[in-house]
Write a protein that binds this DNA or RNA. Structure first.
Lengths: 251, 251
DNA sequence: CGCCTTCTTGAATATTATCAAAGAACGTGG
DNA sequence: CCACGTTCTTTGATAATATTCAAGAAGGCG
């Protein structure tokens, strides 16, 4: 549309990792042809619903979660612009989680059935999508490690580092400060803590001079030290594309 | 090889969900052409190692885990016969976790580079593998919910139900009893608990008449009640294949 | 039979949750 | 632009849950 190199943030994100053919860019563009806006806190879809759509995030933050029957909530993943929402649910005919907008968001929904074109026509793009989904899984494993074996303070440190690393992929000039449009209750529901203890632990991190807060922005003061403390790996900065089917022999 | 319908447990598992063409069965057979045995407790691979292999589990149980530098361990996933190990790591050029055999195991290793043939030649089989990986991710999300928002007893109930449901896919006649060849320390490292508290909580479940133990076998006495208590979903019994590219137009 | 690992049990301790209330920030409508 | 209501955050006191430490019992294996 515009004269920009990448009109789409999905294409921008993916070509960060590998070269895309024009044909592949075309397939991706198809996934982003529709747009849908949601207001803050609105539920994009509920769980246990016939979910045949995936979504590309165009702008805004969202998160998916599962409820227990008694009201406990586990937030599963926070989504940012350029993310694809819905790969896990591809294996089921109903959604397995709820999806809620953290603020105003703009999404590009597309039916999962449309993936079959990509699967049939572009092995290379398929491999790329597979890798994205695989990486999401590793990021989830990191979170699992945090919930299973880290203290509250460590979990928060991990969460801040992870968010920072993720935002850096699309926002290259991000240094040490970023906005965090989540409530402490939401952060707690992601990290398996209560909102009260999130408040206390963040206060502690600030007292100790590791982070700084103003409004809902966070500044990470001692990134290296925090990374060492939680044994942090950046899963966002590379992707192994060496095994991908070669282009030039499509179809 | 033999006169059985499915000489391979991977083929057996996959054709449980969808019909495979002979060609597709051929591709899968290629992945299982090599065999490698490991003795109990041996480490199949360590993390941060150039990992270009995936594995099909032929027999035995294994688990993957990540260590923190101070010795804390988080077990990420327990593998059983018919499972494919390594999809998450496909996105990276190094392994992101360690893999250890719980007892004697037999594995079929194959280089991930071999997947490119499947990606290029069989869109349908690719979609099936994608779905398996996606399903693993949902199972992981269930575990995340357990670690983040459930009590010790609930986590154990969830773990037992999950293990039972998974074993039922390959062992159709499994009713309410199964062997559990993991130590309580390992179960604790999976569920984010100490071995001591695993012992106490299992004892509690038994006292309450929900389960029964003898040796290292478990019998689930009140499956329906336990399922209700932890809001359990069986992720293993179906797979949505409706969106798969149609066969008959391969290549 | 004896050793080694795993499991159980109990007491003391630590971490995090719960409850409650006040203070700060934010958005909305007048 | 201010007042008000709402939501979010902070703080303190108390309670619950799980950990740690330690020692003894049980079970498997040579």
């Amino acid at each position: 549309m515009s004269g920009e190199r990448h009109p789409s943030c999905l294409v921008a994100k993916l070509s960060y990792y590998t070269d895309l053919s024009e044909e592949d860019e075309g397939y991706l563009a198809m996934l982003e042809k529709d747009e849908q806006k949601f207001s803050a806190s609105s539920v994009v879809y509920a769980s246990e619903v016939r979910g045949q759509n995936l979504y590309v995030v165009k702008s805004g933050w969202l998160f998916s979660y599962i409820m227990l029957t008694d009201g406990r909530r586990q937030i599963l993943k926070v989504y940012h612009p350029g993310d694809v929402i819905g790969f896990p649910d591809i294996a089921f005919d109903r959604t397995t989680s709820d999806l809620q907008a953290a603020g105003e968001v703009c999404l590009c929904p597309f039916p999962k059935k449309e993936l079959d074109v990509i699967f049939s026509k572009s092995p290379r793009l398929t491999a790329l999508l597979f890798s994205l989904s695989a990486r999401d899984q590793v990021i989830l494993l990191d979170l699992l490690r945090a919930l299973g074996r880290m203290s509250a303070i460590e979990r928060l440190a991990y969460f801040l580092l992870d968010t920072q690393a993720k935002l850096r992929v699309t926002c290259h000039d991000l240094t040490d400060t970023f906005r965090l449009p989540l409530t402490q209750t939401e952060i707690g529901d992601l990290l398996g803590l209560t909102n009260v203890y999130v408040s206390k632990s963040l206060g502690r991190l600030e007292e100790d001079g590791l982070i700084e807060r103003k409004q809902n922005a966070v500044r990470i003061l001692k990134e290296a030290e925090l990374r060492r403390q939680v044994d942090f790996f950046d899963r966002y900065n590379t992707l192994d594309t060496s095994w991908f089917p070669q282009p030039g022999q499509p179809r």
